[in-house]
Computed example of a mutant assay.
Amino acid sequence: MKALIEVHNLWKEYNGKEKVTALKGINLRINTGEFVVILGPSGSGKTTLLNCLSGVDRPTRGTVIIHGTDLYTLSEEERTRFRAENMGFVFQFFNLVPVLTAIENVELPLLILGVNRKEARERAFEILRKVGLAHKCDRFPEELSGGEKQRVAIARAIVHNPKVIWADEPTGALDNETGRMIIDLLMEMKENSTLVVVTHDERIAEKADRVIRIRDGQIEQDICEKAL
């Protein structure tokens, strides 16, 4: 299977009063269509890794190649465009725009990419229907439950058919039952995308194709669950 994501000798250092090395020479390949969970305790470097993989935070050194593109040879503007075209993001606290309705939040990535408003609205409505929220498309985030907000966030992440979906603690702000539903929904909705989830929740790993455990900025274990 062809690798969608290739990481070579990735380091991330923060220089404050004391130098902190968050990532220490990470090497990694993630294949197209994989559901990968990155596990680790607080402070292990897992969110820093996600941010560097997705082009949000520039590593100190090393290479990240996604779909044949070396992220950190791109300009800031080019990298932003690449993320918009190829990536979807799901966050712990949803990151919905509070002054936009559910359907307006979902259509936003399409409008940014230049899709005309009529088509964007139709595609956003169809995705909301798939996640079971067509009847709440005109509600504002404050009118939705936590689980409903996360379903809107998932719809927004997948509406433009990204090559990779990044999820940072997507169940962290939800109760156990709602959290399980959200993971099942992510798996169902990712279709042809690759799904990379950062979490400290061991239960999510049970659903994954592959589990990568991070500790002290290094890969401690990399297990293909489906092979067990």
Rank of each mutant, 00 (worst) to 15 (best):
E188H: 10
V64K: 03
R215V: 01
P170Q: 11
A134V: 14
L71T: 09
G146Y: 02
V37W: 05
A120N: 03
P170I: 01
D168P: 06
V97P: 04
E6T: 12
N192L: 00
G147V: 09
L186K: 04
R210Y: 00
G146D: 11
M187C: 09
E126Y: 10
T178V: 15
F35K: 08
E191A: 11
D216W: 08
A102G: 08
N161D: 15
T63C: 00
T69V: 15
L128Y: 04
G172A: 09
V106N: 11
E225W: 09
L96R: 13
R83I: 03
N95R: 13
P109T: 01
C52S: 08
I154E: 10
G33Q: 01
K163H: 09
V36Q: 09
I38P: 02
L53R: 03
D184Y: 07
V20D: 03
V115Y: 12
E148R: 08
R83G: 07
K17G: 14
L108E: 11
T199L: 00
N27I: 01
T171K: 04
L50F: 06
V196I: 15
T178Y: 06
I214C: 05
I30P: 03
P141D: 07
R139A: 15
P98A: 04
F94M: 02
E6K: 13
F93C: 06
V211P: 03
R81C: 10
R139M: 12
V196Q: 00
N15E: 12
T63R: 13
F82T: 13
E143V: 08
T69Y: 06
N9S: 15
V152K: 02
D138C: 04
E142P: 00
L111I: 14
T178C: 10
F140S: 04
N27R: 07
C137H: 14
I30D: 02
E202T: 10
